[in-house]
Structure formats: C-alpha cells, structure tokens
C-alpha cells in the first residue's frame, strides 16, 4: 500500500504588536493622513526610530512632518504578486525619498504598467479610506504630486498603540524513505522500527540511531507489538488559543511497547476516565479504520508519531506491570 510522500501544513497565527512611543506616534499620525519622521543629528529619518540606527543612542522625540510626496530612488516591478504582497495587481516595490526626509522609505507604487515607473519620478500616497494605524494606511503610492485622499477631511489623529499582524505560511514536507515506509506500514496496521546493530535499541520513524548516530536502513526493519504498558501520563486542563479544540481535561500517556522497546508519547487512553489512568497499566492499540488512516501528521521533523493511524490505547485488563520499572520512560 502506498502513501503520499508529502504532507502540507499551514501555520497561521495573529500577532498583536505593541508599538511603544515612537512607532506609536508614527502610526497615530497616519490615521490623520500625516507622515512624520524623527530628527537624528542632521538627518530626518523616516519612518521614525526610537534610536539612531548607526549608534544605538536614544533619539529625542523630535518629530518632523515630511512628504507626503516624494521621489522614487529605486524600484522593481512585480508582475505576478503573491498573497503576502500588499497589492493583488502588478505593482512596483519602491524606495522613496519623501520631501523633507534624509532617508528612503520602502513602500509600493501603483503605476499601472512597468514602463510608467522610473527612478526620479514623483509620487504621492493613496490613503486608505478607514485608517487602522498601520504602514498600509498608505495603501500605496501613485505617480504625481498629489496624494489620493478619501472624501472629507481627515479627523484628529487617533492614538494607536498596537498593530495586528497575521502570519500564514504553508510548508510542504517531503517524507524521507524511512518515513514513507513507516507510514505505509502504519496504513497496513503494522508498527515498524529499525533496530540499531550497535546498541540494540529500536527506533521508530527516524531512520537513524539517536545514540550511535548511524543510519538504519530497511534491512533493519522489525515489526513491533501494538501492545504495551503505560509508563507515565499527564492530565491536561486545556487553555484556549487559536486552533485549540479541547475544552475538557484530557489525558496524554506514554506507552512503552511490549518487550521494553520504544516509547510512543502523547497517546490517548480510551474508554477510561482520565482519573483512572495508572502507570504500569497494560494497553493495546486501537487502530483507526483503514479508510480513515491518514499520514498528514507524519513529518520529517521529530521522532515518529502514530497520529492518524492509532486512535488511542485500550486497557487490556491484564494485571499491571510494576510502575517503578517504567516510570522514567516518557519520551
């Protein structure tokens, strides 16, 4: 049976950044459609920084209004924007020297076509309709001297102290030959590992010995029992965070496979109230139905998981093993 040799995962998370006094002032001014820089010696730095970037010395909070128009100092044309770009149509990234500034500002230019862009051209901001106090309150710059502003006068500057930043990155993880074999065997309801010829330990889903640092190939494959002993556990009271689905206390146990081999960590114990889980308890794997087995959790990082194949472990009812013998085997 074959499995997909790659897994795709997207890590998404909203960050909330606190801005501090200097950036806070810059973003607050943006809400009133004003751009400010900060004086650093003879120079006006835009956007303003808390410190002189050359020396680290703290700057006096001497803000100077600049622009809004400026001159393009460098540019490049993005014909095919990607999702993380600020505009979804062809645009230019530009370095702009705003009038009154002594440094350049990185931003984007909506110029329609590549041949409309050149170094030295004059540009001005296009303001967002409803400012939020972020660098993209300037949606982009546009050719010309005049800022594009929404109807009506800007209100008073709103005090901006935080900034939202949403990060989303998709990773495509290609599985190693060992992991492909491991996942195929799991799909067939078999746990396999490789036994290190040097130290005689078995490792699951790694392809190498963590102690001796030698690669372990398919010739060392060994089927392992899907029965074992609970060596330890914890009962977790879930805390909410983006993506968290657990609401009630849940248990996660470590299971030492029969024969005192590999530990499989963070397992669910089935059909047992969390309060009754014991160290030394004998359990057997409850495999997912074949049609539901899924290798999405198998990745090239980490140490071999059975998630997506084994739903959890069910007590066998046999007498417990002595707890002390197993307790250290957590991971």
């Amino acid at each position: 049976m074959t499995v997909s040799t790659q897994t795709v995962s997207t890590i998404q998370f909203p960050y909330k950044r606190t801005l501090g006094p200097v950036m806070g002032r810059f973003f607050s001014e943006l809400t009133a459609r004003r751009i400010v820089g900060i004086r650093s010696g003879e120079r006006v730095i835009v956007p303003p920084m808390e410190y002189d970037p050359e020396t680290g010395n703290e700057l006096a909070r001497d803000f100077v209004e600049v622009g809004p128009a400026g001159t393009v100092r460098s540019w490049t044309w993005v014909a095919e924007p990607i999702a993380s770009h600020p505009l979804d149509r062809p645009f230019a990234f530009v370095l702009i020297r705003l009038d009154g500034a002594d440094t350049d500002l990185v931003h984007v230019l909506d110029a329609g076509a590549e041949d409309a862009v050149h170094t030295g051209m004059r540009v001005a901001p296009r303001w967002r309709d409803e400012p939020v106090g972020r660098i993209d309150d300037i949606v982009c710059f546009v050719p010309g001297e005049r800022a594009e502003t929404p109807e009506g006068e800007p209100g008073e500057a709103q005090e901006v102290t935080t900034m939202e930043y949403f990060s989303t990155i998709t990773y495509t993880d290609v599985l190693s030959p060992t992991l492909v074999r491991y996942a195929s065997n799991l799909r067939a309801g078999k746990l396999t590992g490789q036994r290190c010829p040097q130290c005689n330990r078995v490792f699951l889903g790694r392809g190498y010995c963590s102690v001796d640092a030698i690669r372990l190939g398919p010739e060392l494959d060994e089927d392992l029992p899907d029965r074992g002993v609970v060596s330890n556990y914890t009962i977790v009271t879930p805390t909410p965070y983006p993506g968290q689905k657990e609401t009630e206390p849940f248990a996660r146990a470590s299971v030492v496979l029969e024969g005192d081999e590999m530990v499989i960590a963070q397992q669910q114990i089935l059909d047992l109230p969390v309060s009754e889980i014991r160290v030394g308890m004998r359990v057997r794997a409850e495999w997912m139905p074949e049609a539901e087995r899924d290798a999405a959790e198998i990745t090239s990082k980490g140490w071999g998981t059975v998630a997506g194949f084994i739903r959890g472990w069910r007590p066998t009812g046999e007498p417990d093993e002595p707890a002390e013998q197993y307790m250290n085997r957590v991971f």
């Binding site: 990607i82 600020p86 990185v106 900034m163």
Partner: peptide, 25 residues
Amino acid sequence: SSTGDPAAIYPLELDPYYLAPLGLD
C-alpha cells in the same frame, strides 16, 4: 528551503512594524 516559499517566509526577518507587513520578498 524547499519546504516553504522563501518569498513568503523571508519578509518575516524584516522590521516587524515597518517592513514585514509590506511583504518585501
């Protein structure tokens, strides 16, 4: 670097307030 798209990841190494939100790849 094959696992992700450097164009999407690398803006994260830029100033998180002024540069990263612009997605400058």
